[in-house]
Lab assay of single mutants.
Amino acid sequence: MATVKFKYKGEEKEVDISKIKKVWRVGKMISFTWDEGGGKTGRGAVSEKDAPKELLQMLEKQ
């Protein structure tokens, strides 16, 4: 499965696309949330040019 790689608060992170729940556009950035388990929700953002095609497809479906 595809993953999204991004930096959050200076830390490199990687999230499996299948865990992503919500995707939206903020200017030229793609923001998203995912389920971290245990009732926690993670947040992240990646530039439109660095976003994997699967993430962009999720954005178009909404």
Rank of each mutant, 00 (worst) to 15 (best):
M1G: 10
E12A: 04
A45H: 06
K5H: 03
V46H: 02
E14V: 09
F32W: 01
K22D: 13
M58Q: 05
K7G: 04
K40F: 11
E14R: 03
D35A: 07
W24T: 07
V23S: 04
S18F: 14
D16T: 06
V23D: 00
T33Q: 09
K22S: 15
D50R: 11
R25K: 11
K53W: 09
K5V: 03
F6L: 07
V23W: 06
S47C: 13
T3Y: 03
I17C: 05
T41K: 13
I17Y: 01
K9R: 05
D16H: 08
T41C: 14
K49R: 10
V46W: 01
P52E: 03
E60F: 05
K22T: 13
E36A: 04
R43C: 15
E11C: 15
G42V: 08
I20R: 00
V23P: 03
K22R: 10
M1A: 06
E11H: 05
G38E: 08
D35C: 15
S47F: 10
G10M: 02
S31V: 09
L56G: 05
E12C: 13
V15S: 01
F32H: 00
K13G: 02
S47M: 07
T33G: 04
L59Q: 08
K21C: 15
Y8G: 01
W34L: 01
G10F: 02
E54F: 04
E60Q: 14
G44S: 06
S47W: 04
G37P: 08
I30M: 05
K19R: 09
K9T: 01
I20E: 00
S18K: 08
K13S: 02
M29H: 15
D50C: 14
A45D: 14
V46Y: 01
K49P: 09
S47K: 10
K49M: 11
E48H: 05
T3W: 01
I17N: 01
R43E: 10
W34R: 00
V4F: 02
D16I: 11
M58V: 11
T33A: 13
V23R: 01
A45E: 15
T33R: 12
I17M: 06
V46D: 00
R25D: 05
G27A: 15
A2T: 13
G10C: 14
P52R: 02
E54C: 07
L55C: 01
A45T: 10
D35F: 06
K21L: 10
K28M: 08
W34E: 00
L56T: 13
I17R: 02
E54R: 04
G44K: 02
M1C: 15
I20S: 00
K5M: 02
V15M: 04
E60C: 15
F6T: 05
L56Y: 11
L56M: 15
S31W: 06
G37V: 08
M29Q: 13
E54S: 07
R43P: 10
E12F: 10
K28H: 07
G39D: 12
A51N: 02
G27K: 09
K21Q: 15
W34S: 01
K22L: 12
F6C: 12
K19Q: 12
W34M: 01
T33H: 13
K61A: 13
M1T: 10
L56Q: 11
K7C: 15
K40R: 14
S18R: 05
D35P: 10
T41P: 07
K7S: 05
S18N: 12
E36M: 13
Q57M: 15
K61F: 09
P52N: 04
G37C: 15
G37H: 08
G10T: 02
E12H: 06
E48V: 08
V46S: 03
E14W: 04
G44P: 00
I17L: 11
E48P: 12
R43H: 13
D16R: 04
P52T: 04
G39W: 04
K40L: 08
V46E: 01
G37T: 11
G42Q: 15
G39V: 10
W34I: 02
G42P: 12
D50V: 07
K61C: 15
K53E: 12
L59C: 13
K49E: 06
T3P: 02
G39N: 12
E36L: 04
W24M: 12
I30K: 00
G27L: 09
D50P: 02
L56C: 15
V15T: 03
E60R: 03
A2M: 06
S47G: 15
K61P: 09
E48Y: 08
G42S: 08
T3H: 03
W34F: 08
R25N: 09
D16M: 10
Q57Y: 09
Q57N: 09
E60I: 11
P52K: 02
K53F: 06
G27F: 09
G39F: 04
L55E: 00
K13C: 08
A45P: 01
K28G: 15
V26H: 07
L55V: 04
E60A: 14
I17W: 01
K28E: 12
E36F: 11
L56W: 11
R43S: 11
I17S: 03
M1F: 09
K19I: 11
K7L: 12
A51R: 02
V46K: 02
K21P: 03
E36I: 05
A2P: 09
L59T: 10
Y8A: 02
L55R: 00
V15Y: 01
E12Q: 07
E36W: 07
W24V: 10
K49W: 06
I30D: 00
K5Y: 02
M29R: 13
E48K: 08
F6S: 05
E48T: 04
K7H: 11
V4I: 08
V15N: 00
K21S: 10
K28W: 07
K13T: 04
R43Y: 08
L59R: 06
A45L: 07
F32D: 00
A51G: 13
K61T: 12
K40H: 13
E36C: 12
A45C: 14
G38T: 11
T33N: 06
W34D: 00
A2G: 08
G27P: 10
K7A: 03
I17V: 15
G38A: 11
K53V: 10
K7F: 07
T33F: 11
R25Y: 11
E60Y: 05
F32N: 00
Y8W: 11
T33V: 10
D35I: 06
E11V: 11
E54H: 04
I17A: 03
V23T: 14
I20T: 02
V46A: 13
D35H: 09
G27I: 06
G42K: 11
K53Q: 13
Q62C: 15
Q62S: 14
T3N: 03
G38V: 08
G44V: 12
E36Y: 05
T3Q: 03
F32A: 05
M58Y: 05
I17H: 02
K61L: 11
K49S: 05
G37D: 08
